[in-house]
Amino acid sequence: MINTPQQKRVLQSKLGRVRGLGSTREGVHHWWAQRMSAVALLPLSLWFVYSLITLTGSDYGTFHAWASEFGNSVFLVLLVVTMFHHTQLGLQVVIEDYVHSEIWKMGMLLLVKYGSVLFAASAIFAVLKISIAG
C-alpha cells in the first residue's frame, strides 16, 4: 500500500481517480472503441471481400439485386458504420502524433471527424436507396 502524503488527503475513491485519466480526460474510451470496432470489422471485412470476389464482373442489375437482399443491405450498413468509426479513430491518432501545429491539428481533426460522418451518411443512404427505393 502506498502511503504518500498526497494520498492521505484525497477522499476520492480509487475508481473515481482511475476514471477519466489521460490528457483529454477520456480514459480508455478511445482505446477500447478502437479495439471493439476492429474485432467487429474482422468478420465484416472478410464477408465484404468474399462478396466482392463473387461480384467481380457483374453488371448493374446483378449488383443491384445483390445489394437489395435484406442480409446484404444490413451487413453493408454495419460495415460502413463500423469502418468509418474505426477510420476516424485511427486517423485521429495519426494526426495527433504527426501534426504538431495546433491550428493544423485542430483543422485536420475536424475534417476527419466531420468527413467520416458525411461519407458514412452518404454510403448508408446509398445502400438504403438501392435496397428500398430500387
Binding site: A67, V80, M83, F84, T87, S122, A123, A126, I130
Partner: peptide, 30 residues
C-alpha cells in the same frame, strides 16, 4: 500498419463513391 490504415481510409472513400454510383443509377454505376 499505419500506412495501410491511412490507405484504407482512402479505400473507404472509394467504397462510398461506388455505392453512391449504384444508388444514382445504371449510367453512373457503369
Amino acid at each position: 500498419h499505419r500506412m495501410t490504415g491511412v490507405t484504407l481510409a482512402l479505400a473507404a472513400l472509394l467504397l462510398t463513391y461506388w455505392l453512391a454510383s449504384a444508388a444514382y443509377g445504371p449510367e453512373a454505376f457503369g
